Each structure stands twice: as C-alpha cells, then as structure tokens.
Deep mutational scan, measured.
Amino acid sequence: NQASVVANQLIPISTALTLVMMRSEVVTPVGIPAEDIPRLVSMTVNRAVPLGTTLMPDMVKGYA
C-alpha cells in the first residue's frame, strides 16, 4: 500500500504548501504519492483543502 499526501490542517485556496501542512498516510483513494512531498513545497492549491483530505493531482497548480 502506497502512502499518499494528506492535509495536516485546513489549507486555504491559493495557499503555498509547506512541509507542516502535509503528512503521509495510506488512504483510499490513493492521491499524490508521499514521496512527492518535497516537490509540492511552494506549489499552491487551487481550492480549499480541509484537514484530513487526500491531496489529488488536480488540487495543486502545476503538479499534474
């Protein structure tokens, strides 16, 4: 089972991601792979991401 990136807090729309905002967790459905966390830092989300939500590729500008 692959770990995915999960929001560690509410991430408001257009917020630049930082390490403290994300954690890795094995979830269903599978989202962005946890090993991509370093790549996600400073990318922005294009929607509000509630606490505990799995980050999907279409939620992060420039990721997909």
Rank of each mutant, 00 (worst) to 15 (best):
G52I: 03
V49P: 03
P38E: 10
S42L: 08
D36F: 13
S14H: 15
Y63D: 03
I11C: 03
N8R: 11
L17C: 03
P50N: 09
K61M: 14
S24I: 07
V45D: 00
I13M: 14
T54K: 04
A34M: 07
A34G: 14
M22L: 11
S24Q: 10
S4L: 02
V27N: 03
A16N: 10
A34I: 07
L19A: 11
V49M: 04
V60R: 00
A64P: 12
P50C: 06
N8W: 04
L19E: 11
T53I: 10
T54Y: 03
N46H: 09
I32M: 02
Y63R: 03
T18H: 05
T54E: 02
M56E: 07
N1E: 12
L19M: 10
P12I: 04
D36C: 10
M56R: 08
G52T: 00
E25Y: 07
G52H: 08
V45H: 01
Y63I: 04
P29H: 05
P38H: 13
V27Q: 04
V26E: 09
V26K: 11
Y63A: 03
L10V: 11
A16R: 10
G62W: 06
V45L: 10
L51C: 07
S14R: 13
E25I: 07
G31L: 02
S24G: 08
M22S: 01
R39Q: 10
R23K: 14
L17V: 03
I32A: 01
G62H: 08
T53W: 11
T44V: 10
A7W: 03
A34R: 05
L19T: 09
A34H: 07
G52P: 02
S42W: 07
T54C: 05
M59L: 05
P33E: 04
R23Q: 05
G52Q: 01
R39K: 12
M22F: 05
T53K: 08
M21C: 04
R47V: 14
D36H: 14
P12E: 11
D58Y: 15
E35W: 12
T44Q: 11
S14V: 05
Y63V: 04
S14A: 12
E35T: 12
Y63F: 14
L55P: 00
V45Q: 01
V27P: 00
N46T: 12
T28D: 15
V27L: 05
S14Y: 15
R39E: 12
V41K: 04
T28R: 12
E25V: 10
Q2P: 11
I37M: 10
T15C: 06
G52M: 04
V30M: 15
M43W: 07
Q9V: 09
V5M: 02
A7F: 03
V20W: 12
P38M: 13
T18F: 03
A64M: 15
L40R: 03
A64G: 11
Y63C: 04
P57E: 07
R39F: 10
V27E: 01
M21F: 03
L51H: 14
G31C: 03
T28Q: 12
A48H: 08
R23F: 04
Q9N: 07
Q9C: 07
M59R: 01
V5G: 01
S4I: 01
T28N: 15
V26C: 08
L51Q: 14
V6Q: 03
L55H: 02
P33M: 06
P33Y: 07
I37H: 02
N1W: 15
T44M: 12
G31M: 02
S42D: 13
S24V: 10
V20Y: 11
G31S: 02
N8T: 12
L40M: 07
S24E: 09
P12F: 04
Q2R: 10
L51V: 12
V20A: 15
L40V: 05
R39V: 10
Q9L: 15
P12S: 09
I11A: 02
M22Q: 00
M56D: 04
T44P: 08
E25F: 06
P38W: 13
P29G: 03
T44C: 07
A34V: 09
V26L: 14
V27G: 01
P50D: 15
A48D: 13
T18S: 09
L17S: 00
M43V: 04
L10C: 07
R39L: 13
E25W: 06
M56H: 07
G52Y: 05
N46F: 07
T18D: 06
N1H: 11
E35L: 14
L19F: 12
T18L: 07
N46L: 10
T18A: 10
L19K: 12
V20G: 12
M22G: 00
E35V: 15
Q9H: 11
Y63N: 04
P33A: 12
A34K: 07
